[in-house]
Design a binder for these strands. Sequence first.
DNA 1: AAACGGTATGTTATCGTTAACCTACCGTGG
DNA 2: CCACGGTAGGTTAACGATAACATACCGTTT
Lengths: 367, 367
Amino acid sequence: MKKQPKKPVTLADIAAQAAVTPMTVSRAMNGTGYVHVETRERVLRVAREMNYRRNGLARGLKRQCTETVGMVIGDIANPFAAELSRGVREVLEQHGYSLFICVSEHSAKEDIQAFDSLADHRADGIIVATRASKSSNERLAELIDSGVPVSLIGRDFRHPHADLVMADNLKGGYEATSHLIALGHKRIGFIGISLTEGLRLKRFQGYLEAMNEHGLPVEEQLIVGGRNISEQMPGYSTEEMGYDGMAKLLQLKRRPTAVFARNDYTAMGALNAIKRAGLRIPEDIAVVGYDDIPLASHTSPTLTTVRQPTREQGSTAAEFLLRRIEGDREQPRAEKAFDCELVVRESTVPAAQVQSVQNSNPQIAIA
Amino acid sequence: MKKQPKKPVTLADIAAQAAVTPMTVSRAMNGTGYVHVETRERVLRVAREMNYRRNGLARGLKRQCTETVGMVIGDIANPFAAELSRGVREVLEQHGYSLFICVSEHSAKEDIQAFDSLADHRADGIIVATRASKSSNERLAELIDSGVPVSLIGRDFRHPHADLVMADNLKGGYEATSHLIALGHKRIGFIGISLTEGLRLKRFQGYLEAMNEHGLPVEEQLIVGGRNISEQMPGYSTEEMGYDGMAKLLQLKRRPTAVFARNDYTAMGALNAIKRAGLRIPEDIAVVGYDDIPLASHTSPTLTTVRQPTREQGSTAAEFLLRRIEGDREQPRAEKAFDCELVVRESTVPAAQVQSVQNSNPQIAIA
DNA sequence: AAACGGTATGTTATCGTTAACCTACCGTGG
DNA sequence: CCACGGTAGGTTAACGATAACATACCGTTT
């Protein structure tokens, strides 16, 4: 009895061996309908012996669902995206769905490819956590219009039938900047403006708002990006953006006394640039990051940053998506914005003083 | 003419609109067979108007291939895995395959779930880059036996019909340790032994070999793991392992003068523990990591580490897999081990002296 | 004894696409 | 004028699983 690995085993093969019809095998495998105990056991035994593996294509085709969800992220190495995906997976797993992740490397073209690929393979729904762009938004709208359930995370794009989860980054940026202002800083730089996003970046708008509200002038030369060569920007290259941007700021005649970076990687790059220049943090320059990635509490000095409830954003997006998959696909958009939380560490306040800052404002968390 | 997003558009729908048969539509969409130019254009126009999306399930079912490859990784946030996946994607994309990534969170159970999920959905092949375990190896063997092309990366498991790509970590561990020995260190610790892997970890064996070869005693108390609570170990928790392990070593009466960490995250944790203890690196304790993740050149001090050609491992695994998918699935195993390269930075040699170390051994790279 | 509901199967048709085969037309070269 | 090869398309039958329906047998209940 030689194995013939050429042709995969089908229900019909098992049925022949077990002297029943394929339908009975199907029932036995899925536990649906009536099957005599002995029959079921015989069928399952044969299936195991023949190393049967169900054909998800045929199954999905007939059942019109694959119990599969796709997630598109821009950078697989980004701890923020990683944490999102954990939240997503937690929820999906409880409901028996598999998660397939597609990486777009922050390119709009590959974003679209990922959408298409997932839609073609009839994922039951798609979670999108990449940066928005005109072309990808358009394709996304087509998908949603054609009935594919979609849930967006932190994506600046709204559609009446796509759910949306995000963090209140405007407020986060505002609080980060206010924290620096409260510490007495007046010349505060911003690192991480990119060409395509321009000024729409919410955490940057929060920075502007805080500056304006406290009557501080916003100097254009204190607002820097990276080299802006390409849009491709994995984690470690945003770190370069931070390094280069900080280097630019350090060359100014009147350099800033504090900087707010678009994310923690960028902030880490800035930390390095400052240290290379022989300056002290936070005494000479204070630094605030964004995201509170795990590494933020392990840099030296540890990094003051803004934490967004990352895993919760993932799990909420998944819950929204499942509700849409299993309910009405045309139901109105669900939307949820999570509050951010300032986490004060040594990059803005010397270790010894951290405690007192906390007491002055109970809103602030200390790590 | 209202849209009916309920039922997705099929070839038959387009055929009706364009006054041809579904077969002609199929030919027009795929560019196969003869189709009159005008017909093709009419068909394509109708398809676009109707927002047609091909059904990959039906297509895959009929064609017996999905042009899809699955990849299983243990930790999505691990830059090493990220870089592997980039290598994989590069190659797959050139050949028109999509990549779906499944994350197992370093759990054997979820490893198996990922395999099953990918096999069920009839991925044309699977790339596995998770840690080996008994149960997952068994399931993997079943899959391979049933004809699914599988390509393994850095996984200590061999099968006659599964290709294997890895780095020569034995040699890497040997060279890292030898480097420390050459610098005059005699008491060298190892951080990162885990309960399940035990002593099979190749880079640890390299450590042992180097110590023995140079006549240095291997002291059991210098070999530490982390808290070993769970097997789940994303990047930042291996960092904790490094911190905790180093803390243990620092409490010894006679502490080591150098440590070799199982990977860069672990090494970063060790760096932090040493700095917290007020000791200098490398003067008091030298540290070597493994993997050369992007952050390794941005820590302070920068991290001496062992670089493995990561992206190449990914692309080679993908090439092996494609060869198997498109050729004979029963072809004998291809196997390739990549050489590692010691990268000397400040955590073992003070910045000023790095140059001279390089000259004494042209094998060593300087970053 | 007929009717009924529960149990255990078998039959048929279909999901959407495409490989394989078949038909038919056209112009051209022998 | 016919055979032939190229072109343009249609027809049929799967791919593998399962929903929907049909069958058949049992033991009860009325």
